[in-house]
Amino acid sequence: MENIKRTSQCSDRLERQRRIEWGLRLLQVCVALLLLGTASFAQQSVRRAGEERDAEAEERRQRALSQLLLRPTRNLASAKIQDDEILLHTGKLEVETVDFSTIDTLTSGDVQIITKAAASKLIAPRPLVFADATVQPSSKGGSGRSSYSVWLKRTEDGWNLVFNREADVWGTQRDPAMDIAETTLTHQTVETSAPQLKPSLTVSDSAGLLELHWGNHRWSAEFTLEGN
């Protein structure tokens, strides 16, 4: 009887131990699940934060673009080659300005100075390829797009367009040391006069046409984007 009682007590103890062990295992599983859940939640949060940051960055970019579009002192042209957007903007420079009147005074090698506005600016997502020059990225940054100031230059027999790495200088501040490329422009004297310096970008197939029209002067150059 005593043995039976001891055996019964022993098996009760074993049962209790088993239950405790199972309880502990269950607890371990719960903790593990909790940890996994927390990790997953944290990962999601980080991803969400990253997405929000990206969205915020994109929103800022769009806002910047819309600000630029609304800039009352700039004339803007934009075009897309496939999904790549190219922008060209210039000051709203009237033909009555001293800046326009200097065009006819330039001699070979002179670059046109603009006193009343920031330099004309071109923004492109990839290197631009012209017939006689490829304009390499201007920035070491990681935005994936480059911006340049562009300058009209008188040559012996016509006009060139100079690309300069300093995209945000005033029209009087070109530093020749920062020039990165130069391409030949086609110049025409046209009948229709543009009262303000007017930039234009047009695209057909995978090629683009860059134009500047000011008074009766029209300068143009064809280009493509590298890789197209």
Binding site: G141, D168, Q173
Partner: peptide
Amino acid sequence: GNTSFEIPPQEERWRVGAAKT
């Protein structure tokens, strides 16, 4: 002043200019 600039990411030294006559 100049209000139409855009400073690229990761730029070490980006110049923005303006003038008045």
